[in-house]
Amino acid sequence: MVGRKSLDALIRLYALQNVLLALLAFVLAEGERHFVLAGLALLLLKGVLIPRYLFWLLERLGVSHEVESYLSIPLSLLLGGVLVGVGFHVGSSFVLEGARLPEAVPVALGLILLGMLSMVSRKKAITQVLGFLALENGVFLLALAETHGLPLFIELGVALDAFAAVVLAGVLIFRIRTTFNHIDTARMRDLKG
């Protein structure tokens, strides 16, 4: 996700990530109902609904589908690599006893760090939303890997939460667009004391 220049590719990658996460939830389910349900919700909400909404949003906004960044692509990739390395190095100390999938903990940490990286370095508001979603996926993966899954209601709640956040962010981006005629967060710096 840090290496692509096109927003369409980013959204597709995000959808793919969610499908894979849902598959992981099915694999780990071992017949437990709430894992299956959580995976289904994930597939439906994040794998299908959110990406479709984002595509629609991009269409309606009528902005260029290009990712604008403070960092060049090679530098982003390099930093991303370093962060994943950090995640792997530190991750081993975050594994709890009785973790279901200890190998996934460093991956989840790496995902969280990469999500933050794309929030920090990208300029368009919509890319910040995507970075946030990747970060949220990292948190979900961490919960999946460390515990026997959070209670179903909490997981569904979190998923719906993310959906609501994305819808709200969409509305907000529309407002930004109509007010400023652009969605470049780097140019909005008047709110200060």
Binding site: M116, M119, V120, K123, T185, A186, M188, R189, L191, K192
Partner: peptide
């Protein structure tokens, strides 16, 4: 610190 730049705030959290 409160420069108004969203990216700076995010960077600080990061």
């Amino acid at each position: 610190l409160q420069s108004g730049s969203l990216h700076l705030y995010l960077l600080l959290q990061f």
